[in-house]
């Protein structure tokens, strides 16, 4: 089985990066690709739950829904513990199912799982 890692380091909405990264995961999972999404740097803002109706409020698709769909399809979404910490984002703010790992653990995953690594 092909394995990919998608690294997202931009916050949602202001730039297309987070949306586009999640979108690749939503395309790869149904095709049987073992997919891991890593939220790091500013990308950890996409890990926060409670985003209220982005389509209605700012005319953009909800990245929270994308994260939920990825997890429901069996993908893993991992947030960088260090990046969360420096931004004052606490575990209880995170979308359910998101894993929190240390930078070293994330690097291990990138090395071991990243047959292909996409950076967004």
């Amino acid at each position: 089985m092909k394995k990919i890692v998608i690294e997202i380091s931009h916050p949602p909405y202001g730039h297309e990066n987070a949306y586009s990264g999640f979108f690749v995961a939503l395309g790869s999972l149904p095709k049987g690709v073992d997919t891991i999404v890593i939220l790091t740097g500013e990308g950890v803002y996409a890990a926060r739950r409670g985003q209220v109706d982005p389509p209605k409020n700012i005319n953009l698709p909800s990245t929270e829904e994308q994260v939920n769909d990825i997890i429901n399809l069996g993908g893993r979404v991992i947030a960088d513990k260090q990046a969360l910490l420096v931004r004052g984002i606490h575990d209880e703010e995170l979308i359910e199912g998101i894993e929190v790992l240390n930078p070293n653990e994330i690097q291990d995953i990138i090395l071991n799982h990243g047959e292909h690594i996409l950076t967004f």
């Binding site: 380091s9 740097g41 990046a83 420096v86 930078p103 070293n104 690097q107 291990d108 990138i110 090395l111």
Partner: peptide, 19 residues
């Protein structure tokens, strides 16, 4: 773009080297 990012980019290299 930042110290944090430098740590991430070079950190990846260092980690792989340590492995």
């Amino acid at each position: 773009r930042s110290d944090e990012e430098a740590e991430r980019m070079y950190g990846m290299a260092h980690h792989a080297k340590e492995q």
